[in-house]
Simulated assay, not measured.
Amino acid sequence: MANFREKVVLVTGASSGIGEATAIKLAEYGARLFLVALEEDKLQVVQQKCKEKGLVEEKIGYCSGDLSQSAFREEIVKNLIQKFGRLDILADNAGSVLFANVSETKEEDYDRFISVNQKAKLFLAQLCLPYLKETKGNIIYMSSIESTMAHPGIVVYCMAKVAIDMLTKCLAKELGPHGVRVNAINPGFIDDTNILGNSSRKFTDEDKKKLADKFSKLAHLKRAGKPADVVSLLLFLASDEASYITGSINNIDGGYHLYP
């Protein structure tokens, strides 16, 4: 794996799941990290885990708040640049699920979901672009296999992921001449994350186990994914080893998209 030492990485959704796993693995590789999530107490726990991997205090910062708010997005980038003076990689992992079909979807729930899961991604990237152009850095978006598979029970989620895929492609074309790469990762079901717990429905541990069993059977590799599976791909795409890859949409789902 390429050396991330001294690279400055902004990780959103860093308090749990794929975002947390991303932060901890990058800490092992010596990256300088700026972590973002909604809950400060959870970010502090992840920060401590990164320190246990050898990352010293001055090489890690965090900012907690609501990504749907423009003032918070501006605060993130301002604080990051004040601390590190540069940005090499934006790993935008933040996301949730809205469970509702079209007939059930409430407009206020739609607006809230899109603000965090779609709108915030475009405008956070916009704030980061001047710094990424300076470093010829890159952006990794966390999308989903659901951008290509129609599931009426999560219609707004599917719509948002389609938008992220297209944002990836449009930004890749816009930023290519500046040497900035943009790629998306599209996971299938990933076990051991909080995305179900943070969703619009209350999932028990038994519910989560049933879903993991279901998708293990649907995946052609016959297991559910783990955050480490996704992080391995993210690190490759973010590294110089992927220097000629941009605008790519990368399924990581154990072959689920091949179903049946």
Rank of each mutant, 00 (worst) to 15 (best):
G188L: 01
C158H: 04
V56C: 09
K106W: 04
E75I: 08
K119W: 06
L80V: 06
T204P: 12
Q47R: 15
A184R: 01
K53H: 06
R112I: 07
L234N: 01
N117L: 04
S15N: 03
E241W: 10
R73N: 11
I190M: 02
E20H: 03
P152Q: 04
L55T: 03
Q44I: 12
S239K: 02
G61H: 01
D253R: 00
S115E: 12
D191A: 12
I195W: 02
A184T: 10
A224G: 03
I114R: 02
G188T: 02
Q118A: 15
K226Y: 04
G13N: 00
A184P: 10
Y244R: 07
A27Y: 00
G17D: 03
K136E: 11
L218T: 13
K49L: 14
K133D: 08
V77G: 03
D192F: 11
V97S: 02
L122F: 13
K59S: 13
T22S: 09
F123I: 09
T246G: 05
I140H: 02
C50F: 02
A172V: 08
S96M: 12
L218Y: 13
V36Y: 00
Y62E: 10
L90M: 08
K78C: 12
V162E: 10
D109R: 01
F203P: 15
Q69D: 14
N3R: 11
E28Y: 04
Q69K: 15
I81L: 12
L167H: 01
T193G: 01
L35C: 05
N138M: 03
Y62R: 12
G225P: 06
S239D: 09
I195Y: 02
A120V: 04
R86H: 08
M142G: 03
I145T: 12
A212P: 08
D205T: 10
K119G: 09
I81F: 04
N250Y: 03
S143L: 05
N183G: 04
D229R: 00
L127H: 10
V156F: 05
R5V: 10
Q69F: 07
S248H: 15
E108Y: 11
F113I: 04
P177S: 06
Q69E: 14
R223I: 08
G225C: 02
I139S: 01
F215C: 07
L122C: 08
V162S: 10
F123T: 14
C128D: 06
L122E: 09
L167Q: 08
T246A: 05
S239R: 02
V56S: 12
E108R: 14
L258M: 15
K59T: 08
K53D: 07
F113K: 01
M159S: 15
L233M: 12
A94C: 07
N250T: 09
I89R: 01
A2N: 15
R201Y: 10
E75W: 05
P227H: 00
L43D: 04
E108N: 15
N101A: 10
K208L: 07
G61I: 02
E75T: 14
N194Q: 15
E28P: 06
